[in-house]
Lab assay of single mutants.
Amino acid sequence: EVTIKANLIFANGSTQTAEFKGTFEKATSEAYAYADTLKKDNGEYTVDVADKGYTLNAKFAG
């Protein structure tokens, strides 16, 4: 089991951190699915991958 950390950075400057656990593939998929649920209210996002894929920095356009 691994933990994927998602740093969510919103256009207004606020941030949120979420963690997803499971296999690498499952946890990564859940992190992206969570970011997708936030698109409606926060706009499209881009992701910078860090820490060999164990940290995802998602920046929302607003």
Rank of each mutant, 00 (worst) to 15 (best):
E1R: 10
V2K: 05
V2L: 06
V2Y: 06
V2E: 05
T3P: 03
T3K: 07
T3G: 03
I4S: 00
I4H: 02
I4P: 00
I4R: 02
I4L: 06
K5D: 01
K5C: 11
A6S: 05
N7D: 01
L8G: 03
L8A: 05
L8W: 12
L8I: 13
I9L: 11
F10W: 05
F10S: 02
F10K: 02
F10N: 01
A11D: 06
A11M: 09
A11P: 13
N12F: 05
N12V: 04
N12H: 06
N12L: 05
N12K: 04
G13R: 05
G13M: 05
S14Y: 13
S14D: 13
S14R: 13
S14C: 15
T15I: 14
T15Q: 10
T15G: 07
T15Y: 12
T15P: 04
Q16I: 15
Q16C: 15
Q16F: 14
T17P: 04
T17V: 13
T17L: 09
T17A: 08
T17D: 04
A18D: 03
E19L: 14
E19Y: 15
F20C: 03
F20Q: 00
F20D: 00
F20T: 01
K21D: 03
K21I: 11
G22W: 04
G22P: 00
G22D: 04
T23W: 06
T23C: 07
F24V: 06
F24H: 06
F24A: 05
E25A: 12
E25G: 08
K26F: 11
K26R: 12
K26M: 12
A27T: 03
A27S: 06
T28C: 12
T28K: 07
S29K: 14
S29W: 12
S29T: 10
E30T: 06
E30N: 10
A31N: 01
A31D: 00
Y32L: 14
Y32E: 02
Y32I: 11
Y32N: 02
Y32H: 06
A33V: 06
A33G: 06
A33W: 07
Y34C: 06
Y34Q: 00
Y34I: 03
Y34F: 12
A35D: 00
A35R: 00
T37N: 11
T37P: 00
T37M: 14
L38S: 04
L38H: 13
K39R: 12
K39N: 03
K39V: 15
K39L: 06
K40T: 10
K40V: 11
K40H: 11
K40G: 11
D41R: 10
N42M: 12
N42L: 09
N42V: 05
G43W: 04
E44C: 14
Y45D: 01
Y45K: 00
T46M: 09
T46K: 09
T46P: 02
T46D: 07
T46I: 11
V47H: 03
V47Q: 02
V47M: 15
D48Q: 13
V49W: 15
A50G: 10
A50E: 12
D51F: 03
G53F: 03
Y54P: 00
Y54A: 05
Y54I: 04
Y54F: 14
Y54R: 08
T55V: 10
T55I: 08
T55Y: 04
L56Q: 01
L56E: 01
L56V: 08
L56S: 01
L56H: 02
N57K: 06
N57T: 14
A58M: 15
A58Y: 15
K59A: 08
K59W: 14
K59E: 07
K59L: 12
F60H: 00
F60E: 01
F60T: 01
F60P: 02
F60Y: 12
F60K: 01
F60N: 03
F60D: 00
A61V: 13
A61T: 13
G62Y: 08
G62M: 07
